[in-house]
Computed example of a mutant assay.
Amino acid sequence: MDFLRNILLFYFLYNLMLFTSIISAKPASFQQDFKVTWADSHLKFVEGGNAIQLKLDQSSGCGFASKYKYLFGRVSMKIKLVPGDSAGTVTAFYMNSDTGTKRDELDIEFLGNRSGQPYTLQTNIYINGKGDREQRVNLWFDPSLDYHTYTISWNHYITVFFVDQVPIRVYKNHERREIPYPKSQPMGIYSTLWEADDWATRGGLEKIDWSKAPFFAYYKDFEIEGCSGALSCAAYQELTPTQARSYRWIRVNHMVYDYCADKSRFPTPPLECTAGI
């Protein structure tokens, strides 16, 4: 009987540990779940306190970050981007382990444009400090006219970036083939608005026009579903058939750069590019 009680106690404590390892704040509150990381004078509440405005001018950009880190999870927020001539600006939403040169990072970066040109969304993945995994898609709508939902979802099996629930980037776990995957470092949520006209628009050819400053981006409806323990949240392993069709449509019609196809940078494709990412 003591042996049976010990077994039952073990499973009770184990399940309790799994339950408490899940930190869920959905929807999240900026005041409770985030903090300003730099230039707090350039962030303010707008729309009756329901949204955050980020400002970029010649004196500074700005940024904020989550108060907590998550080993796996799903994070989303609605963003309205800099309108008009935004060349040279970068609005970023990303996950970062904040571990220096050995960091893991999942990036969404909106690269500003000249008026009338498509907005380019760049994704990148850093694992143990190594990045160089850029993909870019041109958005199929004007993201400065209204809010759209941007999501990063990652678990032990698969990492997916979404725009309005449409998958635009997939990176699978192929560690069995000795391909690195971001699964060992909890990551915080970060967002910034900053000047990067040395590379952001047409590789740095289009410079920022400070006569158009200040530049503004807007954020609201933060959602976080994350895990601080070893288990993943929403541990799906593949896209659904509907998601897979949407993903193919994105790659055929809106992808403008894929590091896997860049033979000038990678004469021999990186291993993950041949593993079916």
Rank of each mutant, 00 (worst) to 15 (best):
residue 224 I to C: 14
residue 262 D to L: 03
residue 20 T to Q: 06
residue 137 V to N: 01
residue 26 K to P: 00
residue 144 S to N: 09
residue 76 S to D: 04
residue 151 T to Y: 00
residue 190 Y to R: 03
residue 49 G to P: 07
residue 43 L to Y: 05
residue 121 L to E: 03
residue 84 G to W: 07
residue 70 Y to I: 01
residue 104 D to G: 11
residue 175 E to W: 03
residue 41 S to I: 06
residue 40 D to C: 01
residue 152 I to M: 14
residue 7 I to P: 06
residue 60 S to Q: 03
residue 90 V to I: 03
residue 103 R to S: 07
residue 187 M to E: 11
residue 50 N to R: 08
residue 100 G to W: 06
residue 95 M to V: 00
residue 138 N to F: 06
residue 158 I to G: 02
residue 78 K to Q: 15
residue 179 I to Y: 02
residue 221 D to Q: 07
residue 175 E to N: 04
residue 254 H to L: 10
residue 128 N to A: 10
residue 18 L to M: 08
residue 241 P to L: 04
residue 209 D to V: 02
residue 71 L to F: 05
residue 120 T to K: 02
residue 72 F to E: 09
residue 244 A to N: 12
residue 51 A to S: 08
residue 63 G to I: 11
residue 98 D to V: 15
residue 25 A to N: 06
residue 88 G to R: 14
residue 3 F to D: 05
residue 176 R to G: 11
residue 198 D to F: 05
residue 144 S to E: 08
residue 159 T to I: 10
residue 221 D to A: 14
residue 269 P to L: 03
residue 209 D to R: 10
residue 18 L to P: 02
residue 178 E to Q: 15
residue 239 L to V: 07
residue 111 L to K: 09
residue 222 F to I: 05
residue 41 S to G: 10
residue 118 P to T: 12
residue 37 T to L: 03
residue 217 A to I: 13
residue 62 C to P: 10
residue 141 F to Y: 08
residue 142 D to Y: 09
residue 238 E to P: 00
residue 164 D to R: 09
residue 60 S to L: 01
residue 140 W to S: 02
residue 38 W to V: 01
residue 250 I to M: 10
residue 79 I to R: 01
residue 69 K to C: 08
residue 46 V to S: 04
residue 56 L to E: 11
residue 169 R to I: 00
residue 105 E to T: 10
residue 185 Q to K: 11
residue 259 Y to V: 12
residue 27 P to N: 08
residue 222 F to D: 01
residue 21 S to F: 03
residue 12 F to G: 10
residue 227 C to E: 15
residue 112 G to R: 11
residue 17 M to I: 14
residue 77 M to S: 14
residue 181 Y to G: 07
residue 97 S to T: 06
